[in-house]
Design a protein around this nucleic acid. Structure first.
Lengths: 187, 187
DNA sequence: ACGAGGAGAATGAACGTTCATTCCGGTAGT
DNA sequence: ACTACCGGAATGAACGTTCATTCTCCTCGT
């Protein structure tokens, strides 16, 4: 296995479990089965390792969200599909999402990097919303507001469910959640 | 001014600006105009100071959300009022919200404390949702799902607006956002 | 085919820094 | 003078990072 990946994987596991501040380089090295110095052959600083982890996690999330998106389908269908993908990913990849929560609060990751990592999905989503608005089936509000509201709702539910599974009804179906999103956004 | 409050206030400002890891006790002391030792006269450890800050911030948020709630009004009106309060608070108290974001990701704050701090608002909100469901005007889904979806949407928009004001249309009205919430939840 | 030599990867003890916490000398109110 | 409280230098633990050394494996001359 590639050592670089091994280090990223080890850091991901440790940070997801113990948080950023409780994941010293020495521990990452131990979990990656290498010496502490080795990490610095692959990453300039701990910060840059963390930054790379963040970009990687966002890439996985956004590409999962867009998986199977078919531009020949109607906007409503496509949006529902993307939202279902989003919730599925958030819900099924617990470790990646816990990690993302930790990294999202990390001040050393710049706004530029965050924005850049979202460019892809934004371009798809915004075009879809524009089309929906042109068709008169979606509220005439700024794309950022619509997209953020739906994502925020889904992500917060996924997070709560992860933290306190007993509080949520055990069965939350995708249809249920995509319906919440769609009803919120439709004209 | 009470020294204890002064310390809490100083910690709040520093952590909101620089993050948890870059807010040493020595700096908190300096901003609170006292010695580092004095902080330990009022708080057992830095962790307990942070925990208290978290509870304080959540208290402010939840009581702001419920301000002016009138149980004689109809459920829809009450929910819209609470959502408007929520977004207003999130949007107008930038420092408190940045702080909450930082503390939300802090592993040393236990789940019990987090849940306890939300008890109040949950009891009001859930009763309201139950009534709405009984009246047939709200979707028949678990209260946690409904409440979390609406809050998550509002909070995520407030956060995005805080971080990247240029991306959001400058004017986002309360009516616009309460309508998103209401449309999502209504039957 | 084989062994000497070398290049680069890996190592982990050591370093300097930063931090939470402690402790003691000072100060203000009585 | 005595008490209660405060400040901030001192302390030691923990951390990120470095670097002298070791290890690994490939190359090439015989």
């Amino acid at each position: 296995m590639d050592k670089r990946e091994q280090i990223l994987e080890a850091a991901a596991n440790l940070i997801a479990e113990h948080g950023l501040q409780s994941s010293p380089v020495s521990q990452v090295a131990k979990q990656a089965c290498c010496g502490a110095g080795t990490i610095y052959r692959y990453f300039e600083t701990k910060e840059s390792l963390i930054e790379e982890l963040f970009v990687l996690m966002l890439q996985r999330l956004t590409s999962a969200c867009l998986e199977g998106d078919d531009s020949s389908h109607a906007p409503e269908q496509r949006l529902r599909h993307i939202w279902a993908n989003t919730y599925n990913y958030l819900h099924e990849n617990e470790r990646d999402c816990v990690l993302l929560d930790h990294l999202a609060a990390c001040p050393s990751i710049s706004e530029e990097i965050r924005a850049e990592a979202l460019e892809n999905i934004h371009s798809v989503l915004f075009a879809l919303l524009d089309q929906g608005k042109a068709d008169g089936i979606i509220k005439d509000l700024p794309n950022e507001v619509l997209a953020t509201f739906a994502y925020g709702g889904l992500a917060t539910i996924a997070k709560k469910r992860r933290i306190a599974p007993h509080m949520m009804g055990i069965h939350i179906s995708n249809e249920m959640l995509t319906q919440l999103c769609w009803d919120a956004l439709r004209a």
